[in-house]
Design a protein around this nucleic acid. Structure first.
Lengths: 200, 200
DNA sequence: TACTTATTTGGACAATCGTCCAACAGGCTA
DNA sequence: TAGCCTGTTGGACGATTGTCCAAATAAGTA
């Protein structure tokens, strides 16, 4: 039918450019230059720029699902799996320092543009939220699993935002360390529901 | 010399539009329509769009300084003052739900645009950081005051980002409650330096 | 009153945006 | 070979962008 490589190259380049420079700030010409095709060729694969965004989000959704599945196979305990999530901050710290969190910044931009693909971008967050929720439930925190998932998500977002603004690596390291310690307490059942630890 | 009201109206309208729709997505025409002046009149007060951004940031810096000074006068204890900061999330929850944090989203956008005013936007964050740092020092946490300040900033940013994405009010309420409890522990000297609480 | 300065107007400008298409190249089948 | 399908090209299009200015108006001074 169709040679998928060109379409894939477009989506791949758009994905990176949207992350690095933002969706609106990225033009057709920018993507065309990156893929080294003519500007007119886009219309053969995508009707509008918004269609490219949808394709990019779809790819990100698929990649995220694959990553979460992999973590579920690799991590022997729920705590280990949650730790895998937290440690993306370390793994991707170079990119985060330069461009922030790809999920958070995309959602923030689409909110300002009042863009039609906001729900799909939010689904990206929902993927992590539900996965984390599941892991906390397995940890025996069924009652407040979602609250804990949101808490971890919020921390990660905040750390990414500040690391980006202040261009600070060690801040990431420090906050991840704290989250690891916090997670260990949760895993040991030492933190009361929905409340911070209280010293006896 | 010059009637400042027109200039002030421009900056005021630009401030709001930049927050609601983003800097790049806001055009001269948008601002002109809001202020009800002709598009050409901008050049009398500002040479470029970037100059308007600088003016907007300057106003935000001044307003923020005034707010922090006020909190310092009102709050009788450092803990009360820090609580004032945390509770912006509640006070401004309607705007945060719709547009996110004005400081965080501006910094995120300028980072992607690789904009020249990034440092000035970061100074907006620095204002909060230094003020919080001072309050934690007064609380007797001189050694890790800045780390605690960054931690509070990060939490606030993460909460704002997720509240915006998920359009969730109660999430803000819940996280603020947790931060209040955490702050109370810090104020009572019950949380070890740079580490989460450890149950005996 | 006249003259000067301060402010505002509406449109010109070059560039860029997303969109769209007629023409063309290359490979495959008949 | 001739015809057809799949991909690709480069540029036209109307709209919009930020910038800039000559002219008109308002305000203030002599």
């Amino acid at each position: 039918m169709s040679d998928k490589s060109t379409r894939d190259h477009i989506v791949e380049a758009a994905d990176q450019l949207f992350y690095h420079n933002g969706f609106e700030h990225t033009s057709f010409s920018d993507i065309a230059d990156a893929v080294k095709i003519s500007r007119g060729n886009f219309y053969y694969y995508f009707k509008t720029k918004d269609d490219i965004l949808e394709a990019v989000i779809d790819v990100r959704l698929a990649k995220t699902r694959a990553m979460l599945d992999q973590w579920e196979r690799d991590g022997r305990t729920p705590a280990e799996r949650i730790r895998s999530f937290i440690h993306i901050l370390i793994t991707n710290r170079a990119d985060i320092k330069q461009y922030g969190c790809p999920v958070g910044t995309l959602n923030a931009e689409l909110a300002k543009l009042d863009h039609g693909s906001r729900p799909e971008a939010a689904a990206l967050f929902m993927l992590f939220r539900n996965w984390l929720c599941k892991q906390f439930a397995l940890l025996g925190r069924k009652r407040d699993a979602d609250a804990l998932a949101m808490h971890v998500l919020a921390m990660s977002q905040g750390v990414a935002t500040l690391a980006n603004t202040f261009q600070d690596d060690r801040f990431i390291q420090r906050e991840v360390q704290q989250m690891d310690d916090w997670l260990a307490l949760i895993a040991d059942g030492e933190v009361p529901t929905s409340r911070p630890a209280r010293v006896n």
